[in-house]
Design a protein around this nucleic acid. Structure first.
Lengths: 187, 187
DNA sequence: GGCTTTATTTGACAACAGTCAAATAGCGAT
DNA sequence: ATCGCTATTTGACTGTTGTCAAATAAAGCC
C-alpha cells in the first residue's frame, strides 16, 4: 500500500489522519491474467489503484472489441461513467497480465469525503490532471494523422509494445490493425 | 447572477454562507461579438460562467484555425489546461455573439476551497460531469463516422446551425467543410 | 438596390484508410 | 523439435475523405 500513498503525494499531501482513514478503506486484490475487473451491463461500484500489471478497457461495437484505454502501474482504474452515475457499464476491463490492485467502494469514498475535506481536495486535483490528460488525447485523436499518433505513443510509452498486442494498440489509436502494420513497416 | 446559482444547483446544493461568499467573488462582464476571452500565449487566470451568448475555442494548426469547442448558455468556460497548470494557453476563445459572462479568478476560487468544503465538493462533482461529457465526445470522435457524428450533433443541439457557421461545425467534428457540405446534401 | 465580402456548395482528382483473404511469423505446449 | 494456435504482415481492391479550384448563395454595407 506504500506505493499507493507515494503516488497520492503527486496530487496532494494528506494529513496523517486522512491517510489512516484512507488506508482502512482499501482492500488488496491479486488477480490472474485475462480476469475481468468490470463487465458491461453491471454497475461498477469500485475504484481501483493498479499497483502492478496492466489491463485494457474495451467495448463492443458491431461485433468488434474496441480497446479504448490501457491501464498500467499507478493508474486509477474504473468504469468512470458507471462508477459516477451508478448506471450499468458499457465497457469491460480485462487484465492483460496478472495484477495487484487496491480497491475502494464508492460508498466508502463518499463517506471519506464527508469526514476529510483534504481527501475530497486530493480527488478534485486528481480529476484536474485526468481531465487534462483526456483533453490532450482527444485533440490528438481528432486532429493528428494515424502515424503521428503512433509515433507520439511510442515516444510516450516505448515499453508499450512489450506488453500489449498490436491489435489492441491499433484499436486504441482508432485505426485498423492492418493500417498500423503498414505504418510500422515504413519507419 | 441568479442564473449562475440556479445552474450550480445541478451539481450540489450550497449552504447560504458558501453561496454568499461565492457571489462576492464573481464579476459581471458584457462583451461584444468577436471579442477574445482568451488568447494563445497568455496564461488564463479566470473561470467564466456564460450566462448569455455563445463562443468558440480554437487553436492554430498548420495555418488553419481548428475550432474544437463551443460554449453556450450555462457553460463554464476557460482554457482549462492553462487555468489549472498556469502555463500559457495554446487556444483562443472568441465570442460568436455578444455575451454576458460572470468571471472568477483562480486565486479567489482557491481561497474559497479552503474556507468552504462544500464549494470544493461542488467543483469536484462538476468535474465528474464534465469528464464524462468529454469521454463521450472522445469515443464518438474516434469510433463513429463523420455523418453519424453530424446527425448526433444535430439531435443533441438542433439550434446549433442557427448560431454557428458550418465551417466551425466541420472543424468541431474533425472533418473538412466540403465533406460536411456533402454529408448535408445527402440527407 | 447594387456592390463587396464572406459562407457554402460542387466538381475533379489524389491520398489515405478499411475490408477481406491469404501468407508468414511467433509462441506455447507436448 | 514439431504441432497447433494466435499474432502480425502483405496484397488487391474499394470507399471515404481531403485538397484545390471554381461556382453559387448569402450577408453586410453604402
Amino acid at each position: 500500500m506504500d506505493q499507493l500513498f507515494r503516488h497520492l503525494k503527486n496530487f496532494y499531501h494528506l494529513t496523517d489522519e486522512a491517510r489512516e482513514a484512507l488506508a482502512e478503506c482499501f482492500t488488496k486484490h491479486v488477480l490472474p491474467k485475462n480476469e475481468y475487473l468490470i463487465s458491461q451491463g453491471r454497475v461498477c461500484r469500485h475504484l481501483y489503484f493498479l499497483e502492478q500489471g496492466c489491463l485494457r478497457g474495451y467495448y463492443n461495437l458491431d461485433d468488434k472489441e474496441i480497446t479504448h484505454w490501457f491501464g498500467f502501474e499507478n493508474d486509477f482504474v474504473t468504469s468512470f461513467h458507471s462508477f459516477i452515475t451508478e448506471v450499468p457499464a458499457v465497457e469491460n476491463i480485462q487484465l492483460m497480465e496478472g495484477c495487484v490492485l487496491w480497491a475502494i467502494t464508492k460508498e466508502r469514498l463518499t463517506a471519506l469525503f464527508n469526514d476529510h475535506h483534504d481527501i475530497e481536495r486530493l480527488v478534485r486535483i486528481a480529476y484536474e490532471k485526468y481531465y487534462i490528460r483526456l483533453e490532450e488525447r482527444f485533440v490528438n485523436a481528432q486532429f493528428r494523422t494515424a502515424s503521428e499518433r503512433y509515433l507520439q505513443l511510442m515516444e510516450q510509452s516505448p515499453h508499450l509494445l512489450d506488453r500489449v498486442p498490436l491489435g489492441y494498440i491499433a484499436a486504441y489509436l482508432g485505426i485498423s490493425q492492418e493500417t498500423l502494420s503498414r505504418i510500422r513497416s515504413k519507419l
